[in-house]
């Protein structure tokens, strides 16, 4: 317990650093006022808006004001929607979580059987096929995969709706798009982890006492092979959230990823800052969660 409290305290400087980096990045990449007004706007129009938005204050003052508001849970208002940035993000979070969880389920459904199979039948044609597939899955850009899935399964065969969110059918294609890349990573990891375990003494013991192969693989080997897999799953949280930026845009999925992409394009600073902050918290929490699951999976792991 003490360990987790310590870890939580350690996240504070990390979060502070993140706010500073994001704060500076959104300000050095272009004048938001001139992006908000059309090409035909005059200098006077830009000036009055800049003043109204408080962009004329020196940067350190702007940052301190931002931190002061942040402590009270005020992330500022979105320029685009004229509404509280945090609310916008919380509104979108369910859609993104839905997609992320579904993608993870897709990844697990694909990678667990394939990874085990590939390890058990190592160096066979099947193994080669699965490993090759994993490399391909990792190499395919999700942008391209998404569009191909739409063309094939929505336009040509019309099995699934093209885009949007609503029914379970809407979820299938984006979840496959996002889950494939993660499945590829996980398949390779489960394979190598299983191979390592299958060569160990206790497996030989299990075999020698006459246990069936299915029990050995499923009960003895797989559980032990899970530890590195759980790490990867937790680390994939950031990949997942990164992936939602593209996948949500392709499938017009109204989640956090699409919100962030559009906010970056329009320099909607409050939303970009708030979204990165929330994402950072998610990534940190998922890493802590991985630590916790480790301990449950392998009681030998102790933290001081």
């Amino acid at each position: 317990m003490k360990y987790f409290l310590k870890s939580l305290v350690k996240t504070i400087p990390v979060l502070l650093l993140i706010t500073l980096i994001v704060f500076l990045l959104v300000r050095v990449t272009g004048d938001p006022v001139s992006l908000m007004l059309p090409e035909t706007a005059t200098e006077a129009e830009r000036d009055s808006l800049r003043e109204a938005m408080g962009f004329n204050d020196p940067l350190p003052i702007q940052y301190l004001n931002y931190l002061r508001d942040l402590v009270t849970g005020d992330f500022g208002d979105s320029f685009r929607y004229n509404t509280d940035a945090l609310n916008l993000i919380l509104e979108r979070l369910p859609a993104t979580l839905e997609l992320a969880i579904a993608s993870m389920i897709v990844a697990i459904i694909i990678s667990v059987p394939l990874g085990i199979l590939s390890a058990v039948k190592r160096n066979s044609f099947l193994d080669l096929f699965i490993t090759g597939g994993a490399v391909l899955g990792k190499a395919m850009p999700s942008f391209w995969l998404g569009i191909m899935l739409i063309l094939l399964l929505s336009v040509t065969f019309q099995f699934f709706p093209v885009s949007g969110r609503g029914t379970l059918g809407h979820l299938v294609l984006p979840a496959i798009t996002l889950g494939t890349g993660i499945a590829a990573e996980m398949t390779r990891l489960i394979r190598s982890s299983m191979l390592e375990i299958l060569g160990q003494d206790f497996i030989r013991t299990a075999r020698s006492k006459g246990l069936g192969e299915a029990i050995i693989v499923n009960k003895h080997a797989f559980r032990n092979a899970l530890i590195p897999v759980v790490t990867i799953m937790a680390l994939q949280t950031s990949t997942l959230i990164g992936g939602t930026l593209i996948t949500e845009t392709v499938f017009a999925w109204p989640g956090l990823g699409q919100l962030l992409v559009q906010s970056v394009n329009l320099r909607d600073m409050a939303v970009v800052q708030a979204a990165t902050f929330i994402i950072a918290i998610f990534v940190i929490l998922s890493n802590l969660f991985a630590d916790l699951v480790y301990r449950l999976l392998d009681p030998r792991i102790k933290y001081d």
Binding site: I147, I150, S154, S163, G164, V250, A252, Q258, Q262
Partner: peptide, 10 residues
């Protein structure tokens, strides 16, 4: 709202 051109066409 469908930001991606090819999705809108589909």
């Amino acid at each position: 709202s469908i930001p991606e051109d090819s999705t809108r066409v589909s």
